[in-house]
């Protein structure tokens, strides 16, 4: 592989990282918001959210990406590839994250929030200062797990023409006729990215154990 192939690989890796990172950031927060709304059990809204989480979790990422990209013009939306890709990944990961947050809510001990309310905290302060920090600690392993699934599923967005870390290996081998070296390097880069997450997850688990939560 020559310098330009290396350059293309790193660019592909960057595309994978930034598109995944944006999707993860939106997906973690949106999942929390959905879990919060579902706590309120608002009729119709609740059923719609159940429908969304079921459909989004059951749809393959490739199908979802294609559907969003191809249907956008019909809906009068002018989506560029990156936005469509982020949308597909976000819709998918949000549904999984919403379930992770929801189980954290369900398992949160009532005694903990009672102790907070008893000191005069409003429900909002109780949520922000007592519930959320504990829920983050207990949910982090599940959330990080979902993050690595998302990164490993991200090559699906190549189907709408985004040149990510997997797609770029095709482009390189089309020129060099040597498919193996670029795909090997791509594999190592994926492992490095996921490795960072696993390291983060281990830190989180150690912290959770230390606090006996």
């Amino acid at each position: 592989m020559n310098a330009s192939a290396w350059h293309m690989l790193l660019e592909g890796a960057w595309t994978t990282v930034w598109i995944s990172a944006v999707s993860i950031a939106i997906g973690v927060v949106a999942g929390l918001v959905i879990a919060l709304i579902r706590l309120a059990r608002i009729p119709i809204v609740d059923q719609l959210l159940v429908l969304y989480t079921s459909v989004a979790r059951a749809t393959p990422l490739v199908t979802l990406a294609l559907f969003i990209f191809l249907s956008a013009p019909d809906l009068g939306l002018d989506l560029n590839r990156s936005v469509a890709g982020i949308l597909a990944l976000t819709l998918n990961t949000t549904a999984f994250n919403a379930e992770i947050w929801r189980s954290a809510f369900r398992n949160f001990s009532r005694e903990q929030s009672e102790a907070a309310m008893a000191t005069g905290m409003t429900p909002w302060v109780t949520f922000r200062r007592i519930m959320l920090p504990q829920m983050v600690i207990t949910s982090l392993p599940g959330l990080v797990n979902e993050m690595s699934f998302l990164i490993k599923g991200s090559p699906a967005i190549a189907v709408i023409g985004i040149v990510d870390l997997t797609r770029v290996t095709n482009r390189i081998s089309a020129v060099t006729y040597e498919p193996l070296p670029p795909i090997l390097v791509a594999g190592v880069l994926y492992m490095a990215i996921i490795g960072c997450l696993v390291w983060l997850q281990r830190l989180a688990e150690r912290r959770a154990n230390r606090l006996a939560m």
């Binding site: 009672e114 102790a115 000191t119 005069g120 007592i130 920090p133 606090l211 006996a212 939560m213």
Partner: peptide, 24 residues
């Protein structure tokens, strides 16, 4: 309203059987 209730509650301090300290 919850804010007002919280204000009156703050006039009381409660100690629970199970301690209920915040572990984080």
């Amino acid at each position: 309203p919850v804010r007002e209730l919280a204000k009156v509650r703050a006039q009381t301090g409660m100690v629970f059987q199970g301690f209920n300290l915040w572990p984080h």
